[in-house]
Design a protein around this nucleic acid. Structure first.
Length: 491
RNA sequence: GGCGGCAUAGCCAAGUGGUAAGGCAGAGGUCUGCAAAACCUUUAUCCCCCAGUUCGAAUCUGGGUGCCGCCUCCA
């Protein structure tokens, strides 16, 4: 439980990780706005925090991981209008697809997953308190945060308010429609009035909707408390989203919102950010239809979370081949029943409170120095600001050991170590021989029927009957059709 | 315009003062009925360019070039 260093966006340096309460970690990640399918960029963010969360638990921390779902905002309303749906129908639909994506990626569910619409009253209260404290003001049914009243505004982005005001692009400086409402152009909305016919809630300032930034501040406060250990999200959230969260929460509470700010970099396509607006995105579903979850994970985690990832077919294929190698090595652990192929079960063990850091082979005198060195390498890499590319390098070296050792019992142990450490990164390394999708299954049946046809053509009825009988044992009934290909069905 | 980041082999990508991890691809070999897998060997005299600091720099400093991000919704 020691030695972890985390790069903190606030200080722009790696800091020793010291949670507020020893042994406990409260972490929050900004989740999706559910108005469309999630793409690989969202997957990267989710996998980054999934791995952080897994590693913290693996290291023995008692982690409470919260990730919100933004289920009300202008994008949702607009999209719903386009599709002629009610906003909550739309947000529910894409909440489900998001969950499905996460599940398929083996991204563990957060401990708590609040939705914005569940916290409207708390947000209203939050805004009221900011007004009372003189950090916010009402303006024609809107409520704005008074940015100049919060002296350290800009500390996350590392730009002073003056810099921000002077540096702002013209279009921002002269937002005509808001000029009369805001005292300072940098002020941001805590509450926006809305036409009575639109989605909204009653508030002391009339009908309206909460500002986006308020949601996270409010949910953090109500779910986790006034100060949490880790807060994070994609690097595009640094400004203004997280900067504004800090302003709101710290103005109200007078204490830090989060001790460590973690931001992941983007997925790029041809050196440009993958995004909805550029139209260069790959949905998670599309990617998963071509590659396994392990491959996607390996692809994402082979780059450090703070560096941009270049998405491309060639590197996806490379990840696929790499995954296959790890998988072949790990298979040895599966085939040995006593080592337990229940990877998930193993993970459950260290989900338990106070579980010490597992070092499966460190104290095993038979295992030799090599693997215990690799385990140390893995942990050292992960402790160094979650350096997953280096950690993965250790996994590949464990695979090397599995293949190169002459001692079969030892190889099984190495394979088990590989599987355990892979699972810390959320890699399942499930033997592909054990998961055959229905499409492949159907084609296998067709292939067997081809062989049976050949046998029948050769009047080798013993062979053809054997194929039919074996299929029947598997619940596949073959029915010959005169002059045509045999039909088959599952019983 | 303000602020920030990045530049390492064919591709992806670690390393941030001590002489270039790892993956993929490529080449040669072993094994093999064939193939795959596996194994062995091999693939950057050098880390965008220039200057400087240092016994020593891909790593630090200054300058330059190129690319990207945030400042509007964005993971």
């Amino acid at each position: 439980m020691t030695g972890l260093k985390i790069f903190n966006t606030v200080s722009a340096t790696k800091e020793d990780f010291q949670p507020l309460s020893p042994g406990r970690v409260l972490m929050y990640a900004c989740g999706p706005t559910v108005y469309d399918l999630s793409h690989l960029g969202h997957a990267r963010m989710a996998l980054t925090f999934d791995v952080i969360q897994r590693y913290l638990r693996f290291s023995g921390y008692d982690v409470t991981f919260v990730r919100n779902i933004t289920d009300i905002d202008d994008k949702i309303i607009n999209r719903a209008r386009e599709l002629n749906l009610r906003p909550e129908q739309l947000s529910r639909r894409f909440t489900y697809t998001f969950w499905k994506d996460m599940d398929e990626l083996n991204s563990a569910s957060p401990d708590i997953e609040p939705r914005a619409t569940e916290y409207i009253q708390q947000m209203i209260k939050f805004a009221e308190e900011l007004i009372h404290k003189g950090h916010a003001y009402e303006s024609k049914g809107d409520v704005y945060f008074d940015v100049p009243s919060f002296k350290s505004y800009g500390k996350l982005k590392k730009q002073s308010l003056d810099d921000l005001l002077q540096g702002a692009r013209d279009q921002v400086r002269s937002q005509n429609e808001l000029k009369d409402l805001k005292k300072t152009p940098a002020d941001f909305a805590l509450w926006k009035s809305a036409p009575k016919g639109e989605v909204g809630w009653d508030s002391p300032w009339g009908w309206g909707r909460p500002g986006w930034h308020l949601e996270c501040s409010s949910m953090i406060k109500n779910v986790l408390g006034e100060t949490i250990d880790i807060h994070g999200g994609g690097e595009d959230l640094v400004f203004p989203h997280h900067e504004n969260e800090i302003a709101q929460s710290e103005a109200l509470h007078g204490k830090p919102l989060a001790r460590y700010w973690i931001h992941n970099s983007f997925v790029q396509v041809e050196s440009e950010k993958m995004s909805k607006s550029l139209g260069n995105f790959q949905t998670i579903q599309t990617v998963l239809s071509n590659y396994s979850a392990d491959t996607v994970r390996l692809f994402v985690l082979q780059t450090h979370y703070r560096s941009p990832i270049e998405f491309g077919t060639e590197s996806m294929e490379a990840a696929k081949s790499g995954t296959a190698r790890l998988l072949r090595a790990a298979r040895l652990a599966d085939s040995n029943a006593h080592m337990s192929d229940d990877n998930n079960g193993k993970f459950q063990k260290y989900l338990q409170k106070d579980h010490p850091c597992i070092q499966t082979l460190k104290n095993d005198p038979d295992a030799g120095a090599a693997v215990s060195r690799l385990e140390a390498d893995f942990l050292e890499a992960m402790n160094n600001d979650f350096n997953t590319p280096q950690a993965i390098s250790a996994l590949f070296q464990m695979a090397d050991l599995v293949f190169s050792t002459k001692d079969e019992k030892l190889a099984v142990k190495y394979a088990a170590a590989l599987k355990t450490y892979a699972s810390v990164l959320g890699l399942r390394l499930t033997d592909t021989g054990k998961i055959i999708d229905t499409n492949t299954g159907a084609r296998l049946v067709e292939t067997l029927l081809d062989l049976r046809d050949q046998a029948r053509a050769n009047k080798d009825y013993k062979q053809s009957d054997q194929i039919r009988d074996e299929l029947l044992k598997l619940g596949i009934k073959v029915m010959d059709v005169k002059g045509a290909r045999a039909q088959w069905e599952r019983e």
